[in-house]
Nucleic acid binder design. Sequence first.
DNA 1: GTCGGTTCGACAACTTGGTTGTCTAAAACT
DNA 2: AGTTTTAGACAACCAAGTTGTCGAACCGAC
Lengths: 156, 156
Amino acid sequence: MSRSGADLALLLLGGYRTLVDAAVVELAARGYDDFRPVHDFVMRAVAAGADTASEVGRRTSVSKQAAAKTIAVLVDRGYVSSEADPADARRKRLRVTERGFDVLRQGEAIFDELREAWGRRIGAAELALLEERLTTLVGDDVVRPDAPGWVARDAG
Amino acid sequence: MSRSGADLALLLLGGYRTLVDAAVVELAARGYDDFRPVHDFVMRAVAAGADTASEVGRRTSVSKQAAAKTIAVLVDRGYVSSEADPADARRKRLRVTERGFDVLRQGEAIFDELREAWGRRIGAAELALLEERLTTLVGDDVVRPDAPGWVARDAG
DNA sequence: GTCGGTTCGACAACTTGGTTGTCTAAAACT
DNA sequence: AGTTTTAGACAACCAAGTTGTCGAACCGAC
């Protein structure tokens, strides 16, 4: 039985959604019910040194306006702090808060647990093989910064 | 090197996006530059017998209002036709047009070609194995009708 | 055979995560 | 000093969704 190409795409999407939906639910259960996957991307950019909205926009391949909107939400929810930059009056210096780092760490842990659960189901070696094949096919630069909208609207 | 769980999720998303983006580009090159993945889902529902907006909404797990909006776009672009139902004055009877069936067929063909290209890269047997493992993990009911928003905003 | 509930589609207001375009203020070149 | 670039703030808009409301039409029960 040769699957159709469309089925393959749906299978991949299904895999992603299965993991992310489970992670969002678990994160909500741990008290972060206002956190979305897209926030994770933006916060990682901030944590990695993008300390202005414009820079976050560039790194996540999104307009600075869109980045500013998302950041406003994150600041509002206490995941990111924003203060005037004494060295450059145009800039607002962004930093991930303690709560922000906490949700990032917990998110990582949840995904690792989910991956382990998958490993128990098909075998760790098989899972590693699957990852290897997928890496071959889609490349190692999955999170490359030239893909606009990549993660938006994926965990409604 | 044990990959992180988050990487696995990104790998799956990357796979899906790689296929869908390529398909959207190819479809646009063939003259369907106003077609989005979400339209495919809705049209398949119509083709499968959902001939009213409310029914499409139910089958795609979306409010009837959202379904009606998407259908309005499809009708506007000539992929679906809408006419009064002589048997029930409340209903508008929906049907996929010739142009609609054409885009569905071409979309299928494109995805099949993409899958074959993948098969040439890692081997058909390996690809089949990958699909089998994924099916085990996410289930065969990937396109199940209880997942709202599943495909929206995925090929911006 | 009318009356009450259900269904269909329409309309409106709102949400999220994006987009352009315009503008000011501040910094940086030269 | 003067021009150009940059950051961020607004505004208007888009796409795909949501809820709520509504009238018209249908259906079933009394």
